[in-house]
Design a protein around this nucleic acid. Structure first.
Length: 857
RNA sequence: GCCCCCGUGGCGGAAUGGUAGACGCGGCAGACUCAAAAUCUGUUGCCAGAGAUGGUGUGCUGGUUCGAGUCCGGCCGGGGGCACCA
């Protein structure tokens, strides 16, 4: 520590300001205000016990927005809670013998402590965990509302059974045939399950995407693809053997019907199965198709196989035309009818298949300005627009007209139906687990069937005395819990022992934050005031499921009269991951960053000369040990340093790489700001007026201040934190350069610097604000406004080009007319040289931008 | 295989079609110091040149334009998503 230099003590200062904010309830949000509202929310965390760098990045961004909007005069809601149900708590119970509730609440306590150390501007009075009975009781009530509205259904379904987790997985949770958490090979089982009828909202969820202008295009496309709407025609092909049932197909290209050259059935099609019973070769073929999984992207490049069943189908418009019926591995049972007609000329998969089995390839859609007689298809299908040919009554029509004509004819004779298919399936919400929200239904053993639990009997609480000694659902093998009287007849009944998927919990928490204490699930007035969330921030890994379910839930809640909005999140931002270099020792084992050191350009195990291999920067993960614990950084440098790092350099949507050097650079800047403020000499007292005239270096400093205000305001509004950071560095540099400037101008510059830094490094800013003689807090201070006259300068320097190449620079008054710029440019020596005494062929003057002299040659 | 995104100094990255490389990290040189750390100042795309300066430069390749990192076509490379969706 330098002699006589008071070094900024971040840890002490941060503790102090955090206490101040808490004591003054600085971030408490009122449910009504004269100011406009702004609701900023980060995806709430699962309480694993410790925060990681991903949390730090996420919550820092949200916090900057919250503080910035608050300073701009908005009534800001910035809450925090816990996505607290879920399997890890049960795993901990099985592994360590600790009750899921204790484990979860202990984790929440330690994570809350860590988040508070980050200095987040959160209204903690609204905090809740989804495992609080006060929360899930309201969720049960919502479920009953949905139940009465017919949005809930129960169906026997083939479900994915995870034998390790002893639970049912959604299709989305099965990855490469394995459970997404356990990694166990998934088995198929038929179980009676609860579903939310999200498919009923498919069209609405799809069209709603168009209104989400402040969502990343990428996420909207992913949701669109997930919903997967396709319009087509469902119709039948009769078989030559009249005794057999016709084969029903679904096609989005019925216009290509006269290019058909085969029919293909899925290996799982019922007809396939019938035929296989008497055809061992087909049975063997089916077994072959099942190998390696069916839904794999990897098999897309795999070869297409077919098996000719010997059956012949009749063309719907010509019963003399027979088409071979194949079974093929590229037809999916889960989509459409599990059967297709193949038109090789206009579908890539079909042409691949046709070439392999030597089937006809007849083009029936001809691109504009191409001769039908010479148009042929090689190994590539033509899927573009065009006019029909070789298609009898369709000849000459365009694709859309031909589709309509076919549909019209087949509908008229009763063999076809226009159909819309969705990829989206109903949301399976029941889980055979203990640590989740119980589903409030009683199965009457007498005659009443499935009966909702009465409102007055809510919450239906989880029992505490459960055992995890045996596999399966503890609720199910609890000795007494599931026995209940039927609410209708009073006879014996059994409680539903399934609990909800935790995606249900996270599908409405953002509404509950608007009044976390409300007796009803939603305080309608509070929800109407705050919803929608103005800015939601989280990882792109939730692009489909969480966000789609939340959009569905909000619509369902609207139907039930709980909210007036349909879309929960007006703005969405998906931040990038936090990465770090990876290290391996000579045996190939992963090494923690804290166990290495870099010396003389080499990377070695700490305190030794044993070399370490430095690998690519990858997402921080325990398995590769490339993790930095946020608390080690906060303990060493303070929260402001880690926050500043997260905002600096890398655009927020991209992956950021954590480096020790970068962190030290941030720390140095913290110190530098503190020094600039505390060592400033000749400052005017707080509140002093600026001199009447300011010129020279003082004017330049004023300009730097106001340019910084304008730029940082703009950048923060657009979530371009990295650019805002660069602007602040520029201002700090300008202040350092203007050492001779003092008085009120210097004060203005320093106060600007401190105010602009406020949302990003709030503790440092408060300390500096106080050092500048203020008794108020930055948390209660308005954002500065830029003086437009100071943002622009009197003269500007613009480039001068000759034939588009830079040849010089001129300095002219800011508002100078074209003639002035032109004259100054032409007078330049390099321009004169290029002209060689001749007149320019053309001079382009873009005011305030550039002059380009075009010289003949 | 299809869809989406991205290729700019040693590194992270700036740049409404208008002076490419802001800002940071790292490097180099200097000041302060017995010395180091910290701090401050200068410098830093590449090539040539002592220098002024000149040439060159945003993955490759065509095009549009007075002018292209930016727009359009083709290719190469990297990343993400997916469902062979008829």
């Amino acid at each position: 520590m330098g002699v006589g230099v008071a070094r900024y003590n971040a840890l002490e200062s941060e503790k102090r300001w955090q206490a101040q904010w808490t004591q003054r309830e600085s971030f408490r949000a009122a449910n009504e205000s004269a100011n406009p509202k702004y609701y900023v929310l980060e995806m709430f965390p699962y309480p694993s016990g410790r925060i990681h760098m991903g949390h730090v990045r996420n919550y820092t961004m949200g916090d900057v927005i919250a503080r910035f909007k608050r300073a701009q005069g908005f009534n800001v809601l910035h809450p925090m809670g816990w996505d607290a149900f879920g399997l890890p708590a049960e795993n901990a119970a099985r592994e360590k013998g600790v009750h899921p509730r204790e484990w979860t609440y202990a984790n929440i306590a330690s994570m809350r402590e860590q988040l508070k150390q980050m200095g987040l501007a959160i209204d903690w009075s609204r905090e809740f965990a989804t495992c609080d009975p006060t929360y899930y009781a309201r969720q049960q009530k919502l479920f009953l509302d949905f139940f009465r509205l017919g949005l809930v259904t129960r169906a026997y379904a083939d479900v994915n059974w995870d034998p390790v987790d002893q639970t049912v997985l959604a299709n989305e949770q099965v990855i490469e045939g394995r459970g997404w958490r356990s990694g166990a090979l998934v088995e198929r089982r038929k179980l009676s399950q609860w579903f939310f009828k999200i498919t009923g909202f498919a069209d609405d969820l799809l069209s709603g995407l168009d209104t989400l202008e402040r969502w990343p295009e990428k996420v909207r496309i992913m949701q669109k693809n997930w919903i997967g709407r396709s319009e087509g025609l469902r119709f039948s092909f009769a078989l030559k053997d009249a005794a057999a049932d016709p084969i029903e197909v679904f096609s989005t290209r019925p216009d290509t019907i006269f290019g058909a050259s085969f029919i293909a059935l899925s290996p799982e099609h019922s007809l396939t199965e019938q035929l296989a019973a008497d055809d061992p070769k087909l049975a063997a073929f089916i077994a072959e198709c099942r190998k390696g999984g069916t839904a794999e992207e990897t098999i897309e490049t795999a070869e297409k196989f077919g098996y000719d069943t010997g059956l012949r189908a009749l063309h719907p418009f010509d019963d003399k035309w027979q088409l071979p019926v194949y079974v093929s591995n590229f037809v999916l049972m889960a989509y459409g009818t599990g059967a297709i007609f193949g038109c090789p000329a206009h579908d890539q998969r079909d042409v691949d298949f046709a070439r392999k089995y030597d089937l006809p390839v007849l083009p029936v859609v001809i691109p504009e300005s191409t001769d039908p007689k010479t148009f042929t298809i090689g190994d590539e299908a033509y899927t573009g627009p065009g006019r029909l040919a070789n298609s009898r009554f369709l000849d000459g029509l365009d694709v859309d007209a031909a589709k309509a004509e076919i549909a019209k004819r087949l509908e008229a004779n009763g063999t076809g139906t226009r159909t819309v298919h969705y990829r989206l399936r109903d949301w399976l919400v029941s889980r055979q687990r203990y640590w989740g929200c119980p589903i409030p239904i009683i199965h009457c053993q007498v005659m009443c069937g499935m009966v909702p639990v009465r409102d007055k009997d809510l919450p239906l609480k989880l029992p505490d005395d459960v055992s995890f000694d045996i596999p399966g659902n503890p609720l199910d093998h609890h000795p007494t819990w599931k026995h209940a009287k039927c609410p209708i007849c009073g006879g014996p009944g059994l409680r539903e022992t399934d609990t909800f998927d935790t995606f249900v919990d996270s599908s409405w928490y953002f509404v509950r934050f608007t009044d976390a204490q409300a007796e009803e699930p939603v305080n309608r007035a509070a929800a109407d005031y705050w919803m929608p969330v103005d800015q939601y921030i989280g990882g792109v890994e939730h692009a489909v499921l969480h966000l789609l379910y939340s959009r569905f839930f909000t619509r369902a809640m609207k139907k039930a009269g709980h909210v007036k909005v349909e879309e929960p999140f007006a703005g969405l931002f998906t931040q990038g991951m936090v990465c770090h270099e990876t290290y391996q020792d000579q045996a190939g084992a992963w090494v923690l960053p804290e166990d290495i050191e870099k010396r003389d350009g080499k990377t070695v195990l700490k305190g030794t000369n044993v070399p370490v291999t430095v690998g690519a920067s990858e997402k921080m993960s325990k398995s590769k040990k490339n993790v930095i614990a946020p608390e080690t950084i906060i303990d060493a440098f303070g929260a402001d340093t880690i926050r500043w790092f997260m905002l600096s350099d890398t655009p927020p949507e991209r992956d950021i790489e954590w480096t020790q050097e970068g962190a030290e650079g941030c720390w140095r800047f913290v110190q530098r700001i503190h020094r600039l403020v505390t060592e400033a000499e000749g400052l005017a007292p707080a509140g002093a007026n600026l001199p009447a005239t300011v010129e020279g270096p003082a004017l330049e400093l004023r300009r730097a201040s106001h340019r910084a205000i304008a730029a940082v305001t703009e950048d923060l509004s657009q979530l371009r934190f990295n650019r805002a950071v660069a602007q602040i560095y520029t201002l700090a540099n300008a202040i350092g350069q203007a050492a001779a400037v003092d008085g009120a101008v210097k004060r203005e510059a320093l106060e600007t610097l401190v105010l602009l830094v406020g949302p990003m490094m709030p503790h440092l800013a408060e300390t500096c604000w106080e050092a500048l003689g203020h008794s108020t807090m930055i948390a209660a201070t308005r954002w500065p406004t830029a003086d437009a006259n100071l943002v622009k300068s009197d003269t500007i320097r613009i480039g001068v080009q000759v034939n588009g190449k830079l040849r010089g620079e001129i300095e002219i008054p800011a508002g100078a007319d074209e003639a002035t710029a032109r004259g100054a440019a032409l007078a330049l020596e390099p321009v004169q040289r290029a002209l060689g005494g001749q007149a320019p062929r053309r001079v382009i003057v873009v005011p305030g931008r550039i002059v380009n002299v075009v010289v003949a040659g």
